[in-house]
Amino acid sequence: MRMLIGVLSLALLAGCVSPAMDTARSKAPVRVLASDKATALVAECIKFSWEDESVFGVDASAYLNSDKAGQQTVYTRGAESFADLVPQGTGTAVSYYAKQPGDAAAMRRLAMLATCL
C-alpha cells in the first residue's frame, strides 16, 4: 500500500512540473555542459548531490525521470531547477534550467551538477 501511494504521489508530482519544464525548455538553458560519462551515471550523481541537506536544507529533494530514448531529467520540487541529460556518443550532453538563474540555490545546484561531469 505504501508503495502504491508513493508511486501515485510521484506520478502526480511529475504531471504538475511538466508544464513548468516545457515553458523553461522554450527558452535557452542557463548552461549547456558535456561529460564523457554515461548518462545514467551523471543523472544519479546529480540527483544524489541535489539531495544533500547540508547544502540545500530540508527542501533538498530531487527526482529522476527517464524516457525510452535514453534521455533523463533530474528535477527539484516544482521544477525550480532541472537538468536534461541526453546521451551523446559515449558521453552525455547536459542542459541546466532554473526558474531564477541568478538565485543562490540555483547557482549551488549548477555547481553541484558540474561536480558530476
Score class of each variant (00 low, 15 high):
residue 1 M to C: 14
residue 4 L to M: 12
residue 4 L to P: 00
residue 5 I to M: 06
residue 5 I to Y: 13
residue 7 V to K: 00
residue 7 V to R: 02
residue 8 L to A: 09
residue 9 S to L: 15
residue 12 L to G: 12
residue 15 G to H: 08
residue 15 G to N: 14
residue 16 C to M: 09
residue 16 C to V: 12
residue 17 V to Y: 04
residue 20 A to I: 11
residue 22 D to G: 13
residue 22 D to R: 15
residue 23 T to H: 07
residue 24 A to N: 10
residue 25 R to E: 13
residue 25 R to I: 10
residue 27 K to N: 10
residue 27 K to W: 09
residue 28 A to M: 08
residue 28 A to G: 08
residue 31 R to S: 15
residue 31 R to I: 08
residue 31 R to C: 08
residue 31 R to M: 11
residue 33 L to R: 07
residue 33 L to P: 00
residue 38 A to N: 08
residue 39 T to L: 11
residue 40 A to G: 09
residue 40 A to S: 15
residue 41 L to I: 02
residue 41 L to M: 03
residue 41 L to D: 05
residue 43 A to D: 05
residue 44 E to H: 01
residue 44 E to F: 03
residue 45 C to S: 11
residue 46 I to K: 02
residue 46 I to W: 01
residue 48 F to T: 01
residue 48 F to E: 02
residue 49 S to V: 05
residue 50 W to N: 04
residue 51 E to W: 02
residue 52 D to G: 06
residue 52 D to I: 03
residue 53 E to I: 11
residue 54 S to C: 08
residue 54 S to T: 15
residue 58 V to N: 09
residue 59 D to V: 07
residue 59 D to W: 13
residue 60 A to V: 10
residue 60 A to F: 01
residue 60 A to R: 03
residue 61 S to G: 13
residue 62 A to S: 11
residue 62 A to R: 00
residue 62 A to T: 06
residue 62 A to E: 02
residue 62 A to W: 02
residue 62 A to K: 00
residue 63 Y to E: 01
residue 63 Y to T: 00
residue 64 L to Q: 01
residue 64 L to G: 03
residue 65 N to W: 10
residue 66 S to D: 10
residue 66 S to G: 13
residue 67 D to G: 01
residue 69 A to W: 13
residue 69 A to V: 14
residue 70 G to T: 08
residue 72 Q to D: 07
residue 72 Q to N: 13
residue 73 T to G: 06
residue 73 T to W: 03
residue 73 T to C: 06
residue 74 V to D: 03
residue 75 Y to L: 13
residue 76 T to N: 09
residue 76 T to V: 07
residue 78 G to Q: 06
residue 78 G to I: 07
residue 79 A to R: 09
residue 79 A to M: 10
residue 82 F to E: 14
residue 83 A to Y: 01
residue 83 A to E: 00
residue 85 L to R: 01
residue 86 V to Y: 04
residue 88 Q to I: 05
residue 91 G to W: 00
residue 92 T to Q: 00
residue 93 A to F: 02
residue 93 A to L: 12
residue 93 A to H: 06
residue 94 V to H: 05
residue 94 V to S: 05
residue 94 V to W: 06
residue 95 S to K: 15
residue 97 Y to W: 08
residue 98 A to F: 07
residue 98 A to C: 14
residue 100 Q to S: 15
residue 102 G to H: 11
residue 104 A to T: 09
residue 105 A to Y: 06
residue 106 A to V: 12
residue 110 L to P: 04
residue 113 L to C: 06
residue 115 T to C: 02
residue 116 C to G: 04
